[in-house]
Computed example of a mutant assay.
Amino acid sequence: MSTNSPGVIIGLTGGIASGKSTVSRHFESLGVTVIDADHIARKVVEPGQPALADIVEVFGSEVLNEDGTLNRTALGAHIFQNPDLRARLGAITHPRIAQEMAHQSAAAFERGEPWVIYDAALIVENGLHEAFDSLIVVACSPETQLERLMARDGLSEDEARARIDSQMPLSEKLKVADFVIDNDRSLDHTRRQVDNLFSTLDARIRHSGSARPTDD
């Protein structure tokens, strides 16, 4: 993606409860602009946005709360086991999410920032990793992932395993990773890795305009 923009865009992803948000926040603390896909996805379906009107046209007014906001639970019930409806929803939201991502990254580059991070859960699933300059994957062991998910969301072990099993295995994401952050130990250990990776990426990008490890 960097070949078509004035700066470098790096993908950041990981499995559920792997610690992606922890890594994302530390990159932000180091001064990197992090573009949050979840935040954008919520923004584009706010009341008054064209995407929300399109969703209502397809799924009906029952996907709205009384205050006119999107009822995500009701919408989820429509698309949970219906690939066609999921595809229709994606056709409504994905182009607008991509447009907002491009807007935010362009604004960062206009401010003189040489690189930004795009934080999203489904980068590999959607094939977006091939468009970015490089990909960071946050990883932890399956046991740690399970424990964190149960604690975070108050789930039983069976419920947590079902959520993990519904996603692409972390091992598949690691196969296409350019950089891996091991988030299986202490918070300090994770932060040190992020600090080191930040220094490596910032120096490499400022020197060569690319984050690819093979550039060295």
Rank of each mutant, 00 (worst) to 15 (best):
S105M: 03
A120K: 04
S141R: 01
E28M: 13
S105F: 00
A17F: 02
L201Q: 06
A139Q: 09
T13Q: 03
D153W: 01
I123V: 13
A107H: 02
R212K: 15
P213K: 04
H26V: 02
D182Q: 05
E143T: 13
A177G: 11
P169W: 02
A77W: 00
E66A: 15
P83C: 06
G31V: 11
A108G: 03
H39W: 01
E130H: 13
A17M: 04
H26T: 04
F198Q: 04
R86A: 12
G76K: 05
D158K: 12
D165C: 02
W115P: 07
M150F: 07
H94F: 07
R152C: 12
E110H: 04
S61W: 01
H26W: 14
G11Q: 08
N65V: 00
I79V: 15
D188N: 12
E159N: 07
I97E: 05
G15R: 01
V176H: 05
G209W: 03
T69V: 07
R25T: 13
A203P: 01
L155H: 10
A17L: 03
I79W: 00
D195C: 03
E28W: 06
M101D: 02
S29A: 15
G209D: 08
D165A: 14
D216H: 09
L155C: 09
L30R: 12
S18A: 15
K20L: 08
I10D: 00
Q81P: 02
D67N: 14
A106L: 11
F59M: 07
T190W: 00
G68S: 07
R25F: 10
A108V: 06
D84Y: 09
L187I: 15
D184N: 15
H39Y: 05
E143I: 08
N183P: 09
R25P: 01
T190F: 01
V44R: 07
A131I: 03
D54S: 14
V138D: 11
R72T: 08
T200A: 13
E66P: 14
